[in-house]
Design a protein around this nucleic acid. Structure first.
Lengths: 222, 222
DNA sequence: TGTATTTTTTAGTCTTATCTAAAAATATTT
DNA sequence: AAATATTTTTAGATAAGACTAAAAAATACA
């Protein structure tokens, strides 16, 4: 009884998965509407449909959360999205700020063999170009140890960039411009209380980062 | 005024393009319905819509044919389809009988940059895994000299397989089984009038081919 | 506790792409 | 040319996914 889902349905499932992860609580109709850039009434409709397909549990006025099957569906879509992003950057030489929209389309291609062969072709990558974990064939995700936000680090600590909490093109291009990418090594040289900005050393130069920027960069202490 | 088309619209355009090529005459509603596996009434609707978008010329009861712009659209879709098929076979190790359905999905991905980067990644192939020409960025197609059907060859002529006129999985698997693929060299050893079957030599073995098979294999004399 | 505000749902409409059934136009045959 | 058959179009219906406007439920707050 492998349900065939429309692209729209898959997008809703993905959004619910991600909103649920943020709060660990049922996803409200309004929040989902905002994320999907649609109206609450459309969401109610869709959520009812998906609940009929038993991909999620829905209680009127109480929001919804995915069932085990819904979660599996979400992970499959996320897997495809992140594999395609990796393909676009690694093989087709796209910038990491250019791949999201194309991957949004590619993630809906239906073929298990395609996904798995692509995975193999890319040599079973564990992380995508933004540092997000790629679920494997069985939906398993590699858990990373002790990652934190750059903005949380103490003076003089050294860290390596392992991800970004915001994949928007403008932020990614900002990072590019300042030569920050996955794997970049940073040292915190200064912190300013009054605006939570900081100065970091990278590639032997000093770079000043606003709190907005440093809080969206995920790092690992070295 | 680059129109954004739905997948369904793109599929109709492609079908009209290919039916037109076969007969060089306006495509009738019924023929199109059969090709699209849908009803004539649906076709009438769609053809009216596409004619409003000036992608084709439509005269009631007289069938339709693509405009220059419709043709450009068809060639773009065909280009994507054949590039993806090439990618699937060359890079992801699919069999040539497995790629059609997946390429039918991939051909609708909208991104000029994706198509062009893929083209470059594949090293600007001129033909796809079935021997069909791949339109370039400008819709130009390499014309091949003096190709003919295997069934048309005289006794003792030597030829190389350059394409298939039928991309169905069952036919392609039949060819695979008999070690016939693009580039295979054949010599006609025997022809039987009564059923138009023939015997050909390839890889130092003799293979008997029905008329149905030999008429669907495109070859070039050596 | 009762009123006001916010959130969510319901009801009804729209568009795209499909369908069936019936009507109209064209083609074929006698 | 009339009758018959085929092809094509029109008319009306349906389903998915969206919308607006209005009703209902939940929440906040005085």
């Amino acid at each position: 009884m492998e349900e065939i889902l429309t692209q729209s349905e898959e997008n809703y499932i993905k959004a619910i998965f991600s909103l649920y992860q943020q709060t660990n609580a049922p996803v409200s109709t309004n929040d989902l509407a905002e994320r999907m850039e649609t109206k609450a009434s459309s969401v109610t409709d869709m959520v009812r449909r998906l609940s009929e397909k038993s991909l999620l549990l829905y209680t009127k006025y109480k929001g919804c959360e995915l069932t085990k099957e819904g979660e599996r569906t979400a992970l499959k879509t996320i897997r495809k999205h992140r594999l395609w992003e990796t393909f676009l950057v690694e093989k087709l030489k796209f910038g990491w700020d250019e791949v999201h929209d194309i991957a949004e389309q590619l993630e809906h291609i239906r073929s298990v063999k395609l996904t798995d062969q692509l995975d193999a072709f890319l040599d079973f990558p564990k992380f995508d170009p933004h540092g997000d974990a790629i679920p494997d064939k069985n939906g398993e995700i590699v858990q990373r140890e002790k990652s934190c936000k750059l903005s949380d680090l103490e003076l003089e600590s050294e860290a390596i960039v392992i991800g970004v909490a915001d994949g928007s093109p403008s932020f990614l291009r900002y990072l590019d411009k300042h030569q920050i990418t996955l794997g970049t090594k940073l040292v915190i040289k200064e912190r300013f209380e009054f605006d939570d900005s900081m100065e970091v050393e990278l590639n032997d130069t000093i770079l000043s980062l606003s709190s907005a920027a440093s809080s969206k960069i995920t790092v690992q202490l070295v």
